[in-house]
Simulated assay, not measured.
Amino acid sequence: MLMIRPSFDTLYEALLTRDPSYEGRAFVCVSSTGIFCRLTCPARKPKPENCTFHETVAECMAAGFRPCKRCRPTMPEASADPVVKPLVEALEKRPGHRWGEPDLVRMGLDPSTVRRAFKRHFGMTFLEMARQRRLQEGFSALADGGKVIDAQITAGFESPSAFREAFAKILGQAPGAFSSKPLLFADWVATPLGPMIAVTDRTQLHLLEFLDRKAFPAEFRKLQTYARGEIGFGRTDVSDQIQAELDRFFSGTGASFETKIALHGTAFTRDVWRELIGIPAGEIRSYSEIARSLGRPQAVRAVARANGANQIALVIPCHRVIGADGSLTGYGGGLWRKQRLIELEQGYRAKG
């Protein structure tokens, strides 16, 4: 772990010069490719606006990035470990395989030993790492225009029904229910706080939500109804724009979002969301303050409901609203994310 985190400029310069002193201490995640690398990777260097830096492999994978096949960032730190090395190599060869403890036993490995070794090196177990890879591989296959059967095989599911069920738990519907001629396009967006799903048309952002939010499947179904079933997989210029703006936001270089957004809600709900957008980064408001600013001081509960109904996370900053007593209160993306976001935005406030 980095005891004192170097600045973005320092880490980016280390990436450009392939500085070996950061080996195993920092990794670069590249939003334009969805890949994370060692800073010494020999590949062509990405633009700074596409880069974020993390201290561990676990953080990179939790943010939704896949390991680079060229520099193999999951290997260097653990390459000398006789337990870790063969499993990482096996995972790279078969990222879609449905790994389980019986596989470890067949390889002559003790599952508990493997668990401890991977937690020590990567901050996650081998099985957790393998599950993330399967999810990423399957979704990427669909977003790249692949057929459902191809995505099923890529994700390592033996039966179509198991793949449909697993996929439906994430997006609220089976992959076959997505349109081949969509009006709205769903794509994977990587962030330091975990993967998000963005749904866009050719001009606007309709949904941006963390993949593990419990309400996400219901939100997606509502949007599917709005689009009359015409949601498919794919990336648009709007997807690229929001990815670039999120990269700037998390790197501390820009807190404003210019991506056009579609507001799906009642007139009052839309008024609340517009009020949220007006809260500067680094500042917070209470539900009662929002209600008063709207001229509806008695509508505190209605404001809270509208806040919770937000389905364009970060761009509509519902995380900037707290309880009257100063508590964080609920946040669909998890209170730990809300805390991290508020802490991150204190840097913007310090810059004025």
Rank of each mutant, 00 (worst) to 15 (best):
P95W: 14
T125V: 01
T113D: 05
E137I: 11
L109G: 04
L104W: 01
R98Q: 08
A117V: 01
A141R: 13
E128N: 05
V148R: 13
E128G: 07
L135N: 08
F139R: 10
E158S: 14
F118Y: 02
P160V: 04
F157V: 12
Q136S: 09
D144A: 12
G156P: 08
F126H: 06
S159C: 12
F118T: 00
E92Y: 12
L109Q: 13
A117G: 09
P160G: 05
T125Y: 01
P111W: 10
I153Q: 15
G146F: 09
H121M: 03
E137M: 11
G145D: 09
R120W: 03
I153C: 13
A151N: 11
R98S: 05
R115L: 03
V105I: 12
A162E: 15
D144V: 00
P160Y: 07
R133W: 12
M129T: 02
L135S: 11
R115F: 00
T154V: 12
M124R: 06
M107P: 06
L127R: 01
E101L: 00
R94V: 04
K119N: 13
A141N: 09
S161P: 02
V105N: 04
P95C: 13
Q132C: 06
H121F: 13
E158Q: 07
Q152G: 10
A162D: 12
G108C: 09
H121A: 04
T113W: 02
S161N: 14
S161W: 13
P102N: 07
L142Q: 14
Q136E: 14
G123M: 02
K147R: 08
G146A: 06
G100E: 02
E128F: 03
